[in-house]
Design a protein around this nucleic acid. Structure first.
Lengths: 225, 225
DNA sequence: CTCGACAAAATTGTCAACAAATGGAGCCGA
DNA sequence: TCGGCTCCATTTGTTGACAATTTTGTCGAG
């Protein structure tokens, strides 16, 4: 059951992808030990291949490795999630500003469509769909910025915080808060206002950080069910 | 001769360090092919160990790897160096702001001493010493900020751009320009002025970017020797 | 019953050999 | 001479086995 779709292709690349998927999808929970022999059997790859994959995932920040003590799924604390969001704030505002300078007419149309789709998803109460569009928007802005260094860093950080992001998206009322922030980013970029775009990105990430803290506080005191 | 200091210890960790050192020190030049068997012989480690090291260095951005075609030292173009500096601008200003909020009295003394040492090095014309103090300052600011996520990202980027940084430091007149910028960062942090600290960091990195472009343009036209 | 030493099991680190893929040299034919 | 083909040398990808290390379990002394 666990070999969802990635164990038929072989090779290190696919093993990396398979383990990453398992972690991101929550199949492997935080702090779970990742024993090389077990993974080797589960993904029908040699131990060396698994080992290489674990090294790669370690540098992506998804796995923790200690000498002679093996690897485990890295657990990102609230504190770390906030740190990650702060770095994202710095880098996404940079990307938003650059995107506002470089965006083409075609891309303006594309972004506006994305914005409309997001608005529709929120109206329809489609939380999962909105979450996907959300990621799509952030990725597209990074791509348009042409800042590949920032893009790579942000992509890495996304993997680490995806669990917190998902939890956030599920909180009632959250989409209604983030939607106008996203639309503000889109409008600033489409209007080629780089300073405003950066500021809108900052505002959005500040809101994310606040929501992260609030969500954690709420879940730490589950006395209202 | 090439086994400077890292071939007596054994293990993957030391091989990683040894190869990284060789790249950073310029022993391995950009685009040089890194054949696993050769490295294996040079560092007296097995090929598997070398392979693991190359994977790790790939994720650090020092090495490029293509399937079935091996690894080579990654060459960072001027364009990429500028991108890296832009990301550094975003993150170091974040760290400077945080450092200004959290700096202790002891650390204030330490930073001021560092500043004096830098001033002395410039006065004495000790370019290499100044370069070292420079790195020390940037690292210390990152540490004081307590932003470990940003710290890790910046450390990775430093490795990639160290060659460009070094070239910059060697340009005549450069220390005289960057010294006051560094002192401004120090003063803002020591005064607990977070906004000014961030601004000073921005100013400094902007200057770095300008100098990078200028240095490249000058070296592209070497008609004055 | 607790603590420490010792032994056994599990797990990672390392190695050498084999299989597959790539790039180029040389050859053949037009 | 040039284009394309085959074959070969080089290099990477993968596998299984072995060595070193850590952790766990057990036993006995106090």
């Amino acid at each position: 059951m666990t070999e969802s779709a990635a164990d038929r292709q072989q090779g290190e690349r696919s093993v990396v992808a398979a383990i990453r998927d398992a972690i991101v999808r929550g199949e492997f929970v935080p702090n779970q030990r990742l024993v090389e022999a077990d993974l080797s059997a589960q993904f029908t790859a040699s131990r060396a291949t698994v080992r290489a994959a674990l090294i790669e995932l370690t540098n992506e920040g998804l796995v923790e490795r200690v000498q002679n003590r093996g690897a485990r799924v890295r657990a990102v604390s609230l504190e770390e999630a906030v740190e990650i969001s702060e770095v994202r704030m710095a880098l996404e505002s940079l990307c938003a500003a650059k995107a506002a300078e470089r965006v083409t007419d075609d891309e303006v149309g594309e972004l506006r469509e994305l914005g409309e789709a997001m608005r529709a998803a929120v109206t329809a109460g489609d939380v999962v769909g909105y979450s996907g569009l959300n990621q799509q928007l952030h990725r597209r802005v990074r791509e348009i910025s042409g800042q590949r260094t920032a893009e790579q860093v942000l992509e890495r950080l996304r993997g680490q915080s995806v669990r917190h992001q998902f939890r956030l998206a599920m909180r009632p009322g959250r989409p209604q808060v983030s939607l106008p922030e996203h639309l503000a980013i889109i409008e600033a970029i489409c209007a080629h206002h780089s300073y405003e775009a950066a500021e809108a990105a900052r505002t959005h990430l500040t809101s994310v950080i606040e929501a992260l803290k609030a969500a954690d506080a709420a879940e730490a005191a589950p006395l209202h069910a």
